[in-house]
Design a binder for these strands. Structure first.
Lengths: 201, 201
DNA sequence: TTTCTTGTTTGCTAATAGTAAACATATAAT
DNA sequence: ATTATATGTTTACTATTAGCAAACAAGAAA
């Protein structure tokens, strides 16, 4: 043998890129030959890249991405552009849908706006807050804006409690324990807008 | 000359990466020698990379990133991790601040919640909607959730108009022309939550 | 059976990654 | 003033490998 066979690339980012290239090609239903044509690279070399035997230069990676209909950063980060979406969505006052919210207090009522817009990055609902805290605090990814529409409530956030009245607003990271309950005769209503930037739908 | 001098790299991503490496090094107040020590690469080579004379492999780029206290994707995308932020912010009903909103109708009132949370990805305010449309429609990046708190209003969005009442909610991309005005005796109030995922503060 | 399709592997040459050291310039020390 | 030090740039080089054409391998189709 005149040349020692190169080792597989071990580095995580290199491996991830290789994997993404193959995934995207297969998603397009393309053969290596077809990708070779769109990229101007050889079929054999593309096979080696996908199998992690070789790593392309950044310049070549850009060619591959372009040939796959992406930009290079998308291949590196695993994020890709999304198709064109509906621009506007209106939910009338009577069109809110009652939803169940796992982990919330059993008798609180969640009315979702259920915006019909799949590229949305925010969700929104109105909570009619029950008298008692739920079984345990909520905790999850994302950030929330909460606006008290009416009533008086107690809000628990990560070891602290706050008494809230209509017109008060909060902004918090949802990854700390939080829950709420109404105080007084009248149940409180809170408008919540939730955004999880990591979870791209 | 026994060897032709290599040309400067022309490819946009390569140039951007080179620029980011130097920017980050200078931001840290480091010399090339110091970066050479943290990366295990030669000073001369780092100079060539920063000056766009040479492009590192992905494996080497990962070393540089690590030496700069980043991950490789951050160097490629220009985004970097942000410091730990405040988790919770509460704005009382009376603490909203009147703000000016460029391009809006002159006598509409914007009350911002002014959440003191620099890693926030949403902004929120309450608009008291004027009787007349503004000089021209608004149009900008991002997405908005708008909830009508009270009153009756007309909303214009990209060639369409909608009559809105208390309890109605909208979700729309802000990059189409939009504006609103009150109808009837009483001025409408709208709670707006705005999110621009591209603009990372 | 032979031919075609698809992906993998081989052996190679040209290109260049990455180096040590020389060079260049500015600043500090003597 | 001269010399030493610090910092970044450039040069010439060697080892490595990017990327290729072509051969190989296996499965599917004719």
């Amino acid at each position: 043998m005149s040349q020692i066979k190169n080792k597989k690339k071990e580095q995580p980012l290199e491996k991830a890129i290789a994997k993404r290239i193959r995934a995207k090609r297969l998603e397009n239903g393309w053969t290596l030959d077809q990708l070779a044509k769109t990229t101007g690279l050889s079929k054999g070399y593309l096979s080696q890249i996908e199998n992690n035997d070789k790593t392309p230069t950044i310049a070549t990676l850009t060619k591959i991405a372009f040939g796959l209909g992406l930009n290079a950063v998308a291949l590196m980060t695993g994020e890709e552009p999304r198709p064109k979406q509906e621009k506007f969505c209106l939910i009338r006052s009577g069109e809110r849908q009652a939803i169940t919210h796992p982990g919330a207090a059993p008798d609180s009522i969640y009315e979702s706006f259920s915006f019909n817009k799949s590229n949305r990055i925010m969700d929104s609902y109105i909570v009619t807050v029950s008298k008692e805290f739920g079984p345990k605090p909520l905790m999850h990814e994302g950030q929330e804006v909460a606006f008290v529409l009416e009533g008086k409530s107690e809000f628990y956030y990560d070891g602290q409690t706050y008494i809230l009245e209509a017109g008060d607003a909060m902004y918090f990271d949802s990854d700390r324990p939080h829950m709420t309950r109404s105080i007084g005769k009248k149940l409180a209503k809170v408008l919540v807008v939730f955004c999880n930037p990591i979870h791209r739908e």
